[in-house]
Amino acid sequence: MTTENPALKGCKRLVVTHDLTCKTDGTVKQATITPKKIVLFFVGGAGDKESYYSTGPNNNVADVMKVFVRDMEAEGICSDNYDIHHIGYNYFISEDDLKKNVLKKIADVTTPVYIIGHSLGGWNGAHLSAVLTDKGYRIPCLVTLDPVGEGKIVWGGSNIYRQEPKPKAEYWVNVRADAKDWNFSDLVADFGEQWDMKSGPNMNGRVNVNHADAWVIYTSVLQSGISARDALMQVVVTHFKGRKCA
């Protein structure tokens, strides 16, 4: 025999075996809320995702992506909690490409989107943060690794935004590569002109690293005492609030 709950006296039943919660029932209820799945775009620069004037693909930002995946595994956050995409800097300039390469990979506007860009991918990735925000998406963290694109000469040979980016993100980390011993990649960055913004990022620093070594730029500790890697992981781990793999 089923015993009637006195707190539900006078309330109707939804089905014969389940009581509705009556408005007179003031007992505290507990509900489990699953953190929203996130999407990350790792945006490569010239010669990264595809060949650039017979150079590459070098997959520089893919090395950053590998570090991120290892960090997520170390945190115990399963891969089914996030989608990760390696795209080129020129994959979202037109509306058609934006829909195909970015928007279709995001479930809906409530899905948190993280952008990590290197070189021309840092420049265009910063623009992408504004484009997505204006469309109603949320960007918890933007990371720009030695962004390049200020030089007018590079505009002619690269499909990039010509205006200086005006990023829109809840937290922006920028790291400038300032190698003491130059190599060819630093000459290329100098040709494209590194974006040397004076204000804007929540965290902004310089590292003695060559331009091509995106993963070293990402993992190098800045003057603030943490790296871009640390800053991104803090935001991501906070989102999942300690949720671990089953």
Rank of each mutant, 00 (worst) to 15 (best):
P167V: 10
A246R: 12
L8V: 04
Q194M: 07
I139A: 07
Y218A: 00
G156E: 12
S119P: 04
N174H: 10
S220M: 01
V235D: 11
K135R: 15
S54M: 10
N59P: 01
C11L: 04
H86M: 15
I217L: 05
G117M: 08
V109A: 14
K9A: 12
S224W: 00
G205D: 00
V207C: 02
D230Q: 06
A214Q: 04
L132T: 14
K37Y: 00
G26A: 11
H118G: 11
K66W: 03
S220D: 10
Q234K: 10
D97V: 06
L142P: 07
V235H: 00
A74I: 14
N101H: 11
D134V: 07
Y53S: 11
F41A: 10
Q223D: 15
K12Y: 10
P6K: 04
I87E: 14
A169R: 09
W182H: 09
Q163W: 06
N59A: 08
G225V: 00
L40E: 02
Y137A: 11
S227M: 02
V209R: 11
E150Y: 12
L128Y: 12
A126L: 09
V69Q: 13
S51Y: 03
S199F: 04
S51N: 04
V61S: 10
P57I: 03
V15T: 15
W172L: 04
V148Q: 06
I93S: 13
N159K: 12
D186P: 04
G156L: 13
D146T: 07
I38R: 01
V175W: 01
V173N: 03
G225L: 00
L98H: 10
Q234L: 09
N124Y: 01
P165M: 05
Q223W: 01
G192V: 00
